[in-house]
Nucleic acid binder design. Structure first.
Lengths: 365, 365
DNA sequence: TTGTACGCGTTATCAT
DNA sequence: ATGATAACGCGTACAA
């Protein structure tokens, strides 16, 4: 690997001049600069980032600390982070595999000195402590934090409101007996969605304590299994709110197999609005979450903080999810619904085929 | 940030001794070591990675260069990489947003000096050149390379075989007029799957030139739109092979809306076996690809190469996908199928309308 | 077993 | 506009 010294020697200048070409472009003679750049190109010279950050104390890199996520939410989040980071010449050091806070502490320690800041999803109480610790060393932007931390910036999704909107919509359609398939207990998103579910019920004068809540883990199979539990429950719920689309889709499959029509017998609403949601049978009504936007905003916030210095005040953004009404929730008053014969086909008029975010030139259907 | 000097001073030893505690554990007095570790802990000392790698020329990090991917394949791949890397104390520098090779060159240059090796998905001819260039600086493990490169290790999925298996299965069921929804032209996986599709046809004595191939881009909407094209084609195909599950699912939605039953009127097979595939209506027959395994193997290969030095010979692994037969491909002889008019919605007669008994540990519906 | 001193490749501060 | 040189924090021969 060619060093700055090799370039300097070959170009007949001092290393200082070479360095200046790569940093303070202004102070160097254009001709000399051209020459140096040419030599550097020939030598395939790239400034050594380690040496560079040793003196500058900047790495143009930030760490991304995620819990053990899966599915489309995960990939979209990373996409959003990566896109904005890349666009601004930043690299990302990713670490998403940890289960306990000890692991998290080790990982974040290993990142220290390699990164200018950390974007971190602190979904439980213990990891919040780690965030506070990391905060003392480098700027931190929290993703969906379970609570605010002094000096930690944050960008969050209003899960409570999203869930409440979903439930309110179901109530507006006449449903009074609404069940929920919940997410992992320790997961903050899941918890917020459960809270929103209960709030929506309460606001409509219904008893949230009476509502059936089936535990789940965000995976399709959990929703699939929940189907049987829900159908056995008396009185049988006329609508189900699933804490994410994966479980909603599993639930759809289960209800179908048991011979129950959606939305005619039971309405279903999901959460996330994954790309596949609009292509389900029936197209899934769900709460749209801008996962890549979440990541993108976090990066932008980080860049602002990095540019603004340590004196900048604590920033905070809350993204509002929006209910995406398709067909799985129905539009009729469920009190009027007759139990339909199984699987009677109904031509569906698709209203949307939502292209994904970041598409450069989307074609319309 | 505490430095090694701070620790040395506080512990009343030289920096060399502190350094040894963190490296050649053996050569230092256990008591002294204990003491130093304690002081270091109090001072919250973490060896500066930049300074460290400046002398050792190792970073314990490798770069991951991916094209602009999306969906579950992407997230599973990263999961696999991350898991194994993390388990071995390695960090990953991720960069997945590039469209052209110039961008790729810049990104890989920016990584140089920060990483010990590169795991890279070189899906087109141009990016292969970049790989060859990067190879001169650091070890490279290629993911699904479109061709072998001297000195570049590789782990790949046998897309050709997977596609051929899918088509052969359809042919075995009696289908003779099979269409395909292809992936992006420049994508190597997509191209291989198309090749496999044609090989399968050829081997059965069918003319691959006569088969309908609808272009697509791996997204749900492409499959959805392909539905109309396929249904209009004369003679109408009795089976469709989609280059990935996303498009297969979009296709399923389209066929349903046009009133065509799957698999009764048209059989559908996908590729990838995403988590949702088994919960579709009907459950999607697809080619299972171990995405996280692909990433994991790549990391393990990289670790071996790093440990073995530059003299190790070029390694290569090919992962075989396996056909996962569910219900969307059917089992009937399509020759017996009546031809149905377009636009006329018709009841799809599901043979399994009766709810199944549900085993708790059953994985697939 | 421990300490001294040099070098890793850069940037930045002085000079010139 | 350019050059010499002192950090930056650490690993490691070599010396003690």
């Amino acid at each position: 690997m060619a060093t700055i010294r090799d370039v300097a020697r070959a170009a007949g200048v001092s290393i200082a001049t070479v360095s200046r070409v790569y940093n303070n472009q202004t102070l160097v003679n254009p001709q000399t600069a051209q020459h140096i750049l040419k030599i550097a190109g020939d030598l395939d010279y790239v400034p050594n980032p380690a040496a560079r950050s040793l003196t500058t104390r900047r790495t143009h890199t930030f760490g991304v600390l995620l819990p053990d996520l899966f599915g489309e939410f995960y990939s979209e989040l990373i996409r959003g982070i990566d896109l904005i980071a890349h666009r601004n010449g930043f690299q990302i050091l990713l670490s998403s595999f940890f289960r306990n806070s000890e692991d998290l502490v080790m990982t974040s320690k290993a990142m220290l000195g390699r990164i200018d800041g950390v974007i971190m999803m602190a979904t439980d109480e213990r990891s919040i402590n780690t965030a506070a610790k990391v905060r003392k060393k480098v700027p931190v932007v929290l993703l969906n934090p379970c609570k605010m931390i002094e000096g930690c910036h944050a960008v969050a999704v209003d899960n409570v409101r999203g869930a409440k909107d979903a439930v309110s919509h179901l109530i507006g359609l006449g449903h009074r007996n609404i069940a929920m398939v919940a997410g992992p207990e320790e997961n903050i998103d899941a918890r917020d969605r459960l809270t929103g579910f209960r709030q929506g019920l309460t606001e409509a004068g219904l008893d949230p304590g009476a509502a059936l809540v089936v535990p789940g883990d965000f995976r399709e199979l959990a929703g699939y299994k929940a189907g049987a539990t829900i159908l056995r429950h008396k009185p049988r719920p006329t609508a189900v709110f699933a804490a994410n689309d994966g479980m909603a889709i599993g639930l759809l499959a289960s209800l179908r197999e048991w011979g129950f029509g959606v939305p005619d017998d039971i309405a279903v609403v999901g959460f996330d609005d994954v790309a596949l949601a609009g292509f389900m049978n029936p197209p899934l009504t769900t709460v749209h979450v801008d996962a890549s936007g979440l990541g993108g905003h976090a990066v932008e916030m980080m860049l602002e903080v990095l540019a603004g210095g340590a004196d900048s005040e604590t920033r905070r953004i809350v993204l509002s999810p929006s209910l995406k009404i398709r067909q799985s929730c129905g539009t009729l008053d469920p009190a009027q619904l007759v139990r339909r014969p199984l699987m009677e086909p109904r031509p569906s008029n698709r209203d949307d085929a939502t292209p994904r975010l970041q598409g450069e030139e989307e074609v319309q259907p």
